[in-house]
Design a protein around this nucleic acid. Sequence first.
DNA 1: AACCTAAGTTACTAAAAAGTAGCATTTGTA
DNA 2: TACAAATGCTACTTTTTAGTAACTTAGGTT
Lengths: 110, 110
Amino acid sequence: MKKQCPVATTMNLIDNKWKILILRDILKGPKRFGFLKKSVVGISSKMLSQNLHEMERDGILNRKVFPEVPPHVEYSLSPLGESMRPIIRSMEKWGNNYLENVKGKQQIKF
Amino acid sequence: MKKQCPVATTMNLIDNKWKILILRDILKGPKRFGFLKKSVVGISSKMLSQNLHEMERDGILNRKVFPEVPPHVEYSLSPLGESMRPIIRSMEKWGNNYLENVKGKQQIKF
DNA sequence: AACCTAAGTTACTAAAAAGTAGCATTTGTA
DNA sequence: TACAAATGCTACTTTTTAGTAACTTAGGTT
């Protein structure tokens, strides 16, 4: 069997924008469904639910259900998820630099 | 206007797997269409062409056409593209660690 | 008795993304 | 004569993804 590309491997686990943004939020601490729904601008319940389940399945997130009514569910990082912090951090740095130094200082619109 | 999220900003420019993998290759040096077609496993001509044009439009890549027959086109990094190196690098590191330490040592399949 | 809450699920539909095949270019070679 | 080379583009179809609306649960509040 041939060796797999590490970059492609990473992309197989965080393969869409929503997962990155969910990760961005949960890296700051455990979060509830409702919080993420508001924080991840534009995501629908369905997409949020779906991505959270996939990330749990892939071992990136932990899901803790509090047996209460109304429901209370908390999502937190697993060690594997925590190990993705440098990836998100590098994106954050790049985005900050872009917003400060590139966007708006060029004529082409973003 | 409200401040934008730097992580979301980054994701708006490299919003799919193909762009990441194209970037991975061109970070090693300028590449031709045909090379990328073989290297980015699974990509179609259409997708490759489309993503290359988007990346050029967004200022990440430079496109240089050599007026020859058969056509010769070379894609290289702009300074903005070059500045994404740490992002790809962090993904590469994470992927390597995952392949070595996680995948295969757990029962759930990948 | 009816409504509210949080966290979803389900079914249905609409939209976006991607696959496929065929075509074009133009010079050189078999 | 006809084919090959490299780099796409176009039109058409299929597949995948995502949006929307309705529904559920069960205890607490008006």
